[in-house]
Nucleic acid binder design. Structure first.
Lengths: 135, 135
DNA sequence: TCAATTCCTATAAAGTTTATAGGAATTATT
DNA sequence: AATAATTCCTATAAACTTTATAGGAATTGA
């Protein structure tokens, strides 16, 4: 399952992509209202997306958020990794968040294989799905 | 990510499958020691697997556990659903644990599709992977 | 009767997710 | 210069989930 946070992030990105043509940046408060996301929680999400270069933000009274890339350049793999972390279902098969299984001899492990297959199929799908394709 | 519990369950099933030819059932204490799983925690896991008809148990001094099906009839889809619940990454695309998204109009939802694809690919892999194939 | 097991329920401990609080820094406008 | 509205930041609370343990009841073969 993806987290609620990740779903909020996705909704926010889609909202920003839909309103990409506006001349001024978009307030987090507007997104929060329209998408029914808790305002303060959304702020921390948007900040994470900005830290990851997905969004551009500006401050002050006329501040707000904008996409920092074309909507077809923002992939679900990016989003999920930023917000939820690993996409793989086992730490030891994660490409971006690899970790050894504490009590598991990896060379003789018989279960890795199937989880690598799932990871690859999942990455293929999320990696070829952009925010633009979800409008 | 699958839970630690689910990984424990998988290890236990593989252990039981490996020792399927033994005349007597296998103690949870033996599995716990061999696979380094907390004993009491393992007991609750094995009970869940028994409740789901995956295992057969017998009580008393010579009691223990055995597979209740051929190892090639126990699929990863079964295991994961019993222990962790839904395989899908969104409640609204789960086949076995469907739930509506609270604030989401499902008919106009644009994100379901990609998660259905991931679900289908994942089910195809886990659904064609048996405990036997992991020995 | 004993010893060892499975079985059951409750609960503790630890960790994660979700959300809020309170304000600092910034910036256009008045 | 003051104001008002924003983003930004850190800390923490609240809720929930996962992981693990405790304490024994029921069962069964010897």
């Amino acid at each position: 399952m993806i987290s609620k946070k990740c779903k909020y992030a996705l909704k926010a990105l889609i909202y920003l992509a839909k309103n990409q043509e506006r001349p001024t940046p978009i307030f987090s408060s507007e997104i929060a209202e329209q998408e029914r996301i808790p305002k303060k929680f959304l702020e921390t999400i948007l900040r994470e997306l900005r830290n990851a270069q997905i969004l551009h933000s500006s401050r002050g009274k006329t501040g707000g958020y904008k996409l920092n890339k074309a909507a077809d350049q923002i992939l679900l793999t990016d989003l999920i990794r930023i917000i939820d972390g690993p996409i793989a279902m086992l730490p030891c098969v994660s490409l971006n968040y690899y970790a050894t299984c504490p009590e598991c001899d990896e060379s003789s492990c018989t279960i890795k294989g199937v989880f690598e297959k799932v990871r690859d199929e999942t990455l293929a799908i999320f990696g070829s799905t952009s925010i633009k394709s979800l409008l």
